[in-house]
Design a protein around this nucleic acid. Structure first.
Lengths: 330, 330
DNA sequence: AATTATTATGATATTGATTTCATATCGTGA
DNA sequence: TCACGATATGAAATCAATATCATAATAATT
């Protein structure tokens, strides 16, 4: 059933029906007629047809590197909360860390599919930049900084610095690091830089032998911990760029009877739900993931309302959460 | 830029452009002309306009009770994998366990927004049923069974039964239970029934004092464990309907020096990522969440291809994963 | 009382695509 | 040579809505 069939059924004009759904001028008696007919027929206007003419889809494209990650799903939850309230729905694309899918979804979103885009990318290439430049709808980037775009990001460098410093202040002399791919500027490079700043500030040197790069998984953290601890290096503190990596590393430590925090202190980033139930509760840094989603969504909304050429960067702060994994007295 | 402007720019007819994007008859020279113009202009056909005429949105509506849950995001990952390959995108609605949002998104999906719907609901009311009946597009339900619909579900009763039996076989005599709201048929009721069957089969009786109902969170598991263990009941085994509940409960046990598994064995359901890094690695039941997503998506695809009146129910099996939390010798 | 602003109305144009239709061309087998 | 199916074409109809427009009926202001 389309609008004209429905209008006939309700005994009003097509325009009246359209006005009913779009808050135009409409007399009370017609409203009632329409509502009665609505109950009889169950008619609903077609969103696609509406979108053709009005150029509003009420859809926001959200591009994610993966779905089953605690940090990412917290961001998404924040996004969904704010946008849902404003009547927007999320068109979600899971790129599974596949570079090409990231590009192709940006392509897709150019086809008048969405009113705005939120991008949680880990890496930015020239192709990313050129596609983003072609976007005709507002874009907000969460978790990374990109010049010329609205961004909500975390103080990754500071978070890594503070956590590392916390351990060094307790007398650690052989700091080790398990990080992420430095192409990922936020979680890879910045957290590495924060670690290095703390090490240098403590009068120590950053030894590449004490640094490993892992994937964002527990098993990868386990593997890299083996490389660091199965020889004569004997690190006395370990900073991990994510809690997942830290949890995997600690599993290796437990299996090999390396005591936490007595033999080695361990610190992570992310404040994952499981941190406090690990065999040694993990010290970590809380990043405001959900807030990032909320603020990013708000940014997008205001950008959609009145598009401006000024781009804002919102950097969220962090909070150190100290637990037993760094609870060592020197 | 629309199709007729673009056709003019390319020097071909509107029909030719449409055929180019829809694999109709088209001479080679026109294809080339169009491709050249495509590069010059960056034209992309509008999805909304296409949808009006062809009634295909290439969008699948997915309704979820929450986003930041490991089990749910695994299901979603499976869905996204299969549908992404077929060129479908996900229109995701996070209902945040809010009954009304579940209803209103079903309403929304009736407005010719999506080609199909996947529903991960926890509770079914009469309103659900009547709205589902009005759906004009195929629907698949994951995680629950509902008569008259295509469903992919888990053997929740069996999973709970086997895990409980495992503990009772090791000589437990005072089994305790922390479950979920029984309105949730799968995770609430069925897992409770599985627990009860195992208890009765072992010649014991189900004592309501030993049974608690929690929310799907660690903190709720912690709370309910307090109720069970801060008195003279002294359960010697504890079955939890989810790993989150189990992890919270174990935190309480640790804080109160109740040893796992010596004083009490603990078993969960879900095979969460963190299970093996808990202070006592948790015995659990692996449910094939991702497979459920994959199979549900396949079901939807085949239903969209040729709609049949026959509805299938696919029940996935489970696998017991035994770890230290039940590693007790009697 | 005259003038203006606000509310209300429905026919018609418009949006940007696909589908239909009438028609033309070409190669192939009877 | 004729008939037929496959290929190819572009004008026009169609899809289901909103936007525009001309106009009427009130209400408010001078």
């Amino acid at each position: 059933m389309n609008i004209s069939e429905f209008a006939k059924e309700a005994g009003v004009s097509v325009s009246a029906v359209s006005r009913y759904f779009n808050n135009g001028y409409l007399a009370e008696d017609k409203k009632e007629k329409i509502e009665a007919a609505l109950k009889r027929t169950g008619y609903m206007p077609s969103y696609s047809a509406r979108a053709v003419r009005s150029k509003v889809t009420k859809l926001i494209g959200v591009i994610l590197p993966k779905l089953s990650s605690e940090s990412i799903s917290r961001v998404t939850e924040g996004i969904s909360e704010v946008l849902g309230e404003e009547g927007f729905e999320l068109l979600l694309v899971n790129t599974a860390n596949d570079y090409n899918r990231e590009i192709s979804s940006l392509e897709l979103f150019r086809q008048n599919r969405v009113d705005g885009v939120i991008l949680l990318a880990s890496v930015f290439t020239d192709l990313h930049r050129s596609l983003l430049a072609k976007m005709r709808v507002p874009v907000v980037i969460i978790g990374q900084q990109l010049k010329g775009y609205n961004c909500v990001c975390h103080n990754d460098e500071g978070a890594a610095y503070s956590m590392t410093k916390l351990m060094l202040n307790k007398g650690a002399k052989r700091p080790a690091f398990i990080g992420a791919n430095p192409d990922d500027k936020a979680a890879g490079l910045d957290r590495r830089l924060g670690f290095e700043r703390a090490v240098k500030e403590a009068g120590l040197t950053v030894d590449p032998k004490y640094c490993e790069i892992a994937k964002f998984s527990m098993s990868s953290g386990y593997e890299k911990a083996r490389r660091l601890f199965s020889n004569r290096l004997k690190p006395d503190c370990l900073f991990c760029a994510t809690d997942n990596i830290a949890a995997g590393a600690m599993q290796y430590l437990r299996e090999n009877n390396i005591r936490v925090p007595d033999d080695v202190m361990v610190g992570g980033v992310g404040d994952s739900r499981f941190d406090k139930v690990l065999y040694v509760p993990l010290s970590t840094v809380h990043l405001h993931y959900k807030t990032a989603g909320i603020e990013g969504a708000k940014m997008l909304l205001s950008e959609m309302k009145d598009r401006s050429e000024v781009h804002r960067i919102l950097q969220l702060e962090y909070e150190i959460i100290e637990r037993e994994s760094t609870d060592k007295h020197c």
